[in-house]
């Protein structure tokens, strides 16, 4: 039984399009969780500061703090696991195919012949976890295709492969 079936929210029903073949690194879960922790610590912290500094903190502050704490914990627990089930990638001889998101999911498909550049980027948290984000840009002004949460070595390999195939493919990519 797949692990996710225990959580109804996380189940990903199939449709006419199959999921890309490869999972992202397991450490990406930790990365997403850390990002969420940072967000909620800031939000709760701000409320804490108001409560500590103000002589007569407003009554509703207590409610918002409780709500933020509950929603925050749920977000930190559910979001990374859900994302890990969704985020996938695949490169074939003529296309890059990715799936990302959680509540709203996004499939991206870019033909190799239209790729202009392939880069990797690593934020501070990602460096800590040895993760990389691969960004594939095409001639479109709207949104490059990104694969986040890849193992740094895997990312480097993808960049090498894609660069090689892109150079071998003719066309001015517009």
């Amino acid at each position: 039984m797949p692990a996710g079936d225990t959580l109804v929210l996380v189940s990903e029903s199939e449709w006419g399009l199959r999921a890309p073949a490869n999972l992202v690194s397991k450490r990406a879960v930790a990365h997403w969780a850390l990002q969420a922790v940072v967000l909620w610590v800031v939000l709760l912290g701000a409320q804490g500061v108001v409560w500590a500094v103000s002589d007569s903190p407003p009554r509703w502050l207590g409610y918002t703090a409780v709500v933020s704490a509950v929603v925050g914990v749920a977000h930190i627990v559910v979001m990374p696991l859900w994302r890990y089930r969704v985020h996938r990638w695949e490169t074939t001889a003529d296309a890059v195919f990715t799936r990302s998101g959680w509540v709203t999911q996004e499939w991206r498909l870019a033909p190799i012949s239209r790729i202009q550049t392939v880069d990797t980027g690593r934020g501070p948290l990602q460096q800590l976890l040895k993760l990389s984000t691969v960004t594939v840009t095409t001639a479109s002004a709207r949104g490059p295709v990104t694969i986040e949460g890849l193992d740094a070595d895997v990312a480097a390999r993808i960049v090498d492969e894609l660069s090689a195939t892109t150079q071998a493919t003719p066309g001015d990519a517009t």
Partner: peptide, 13 residues
Amino acid sequence: IIGWKLTRTLFQR
């Protein structure tokens, strides 16, 4: 057309 984006929200799914 140089690529596709397919978006599915929870309600769309």
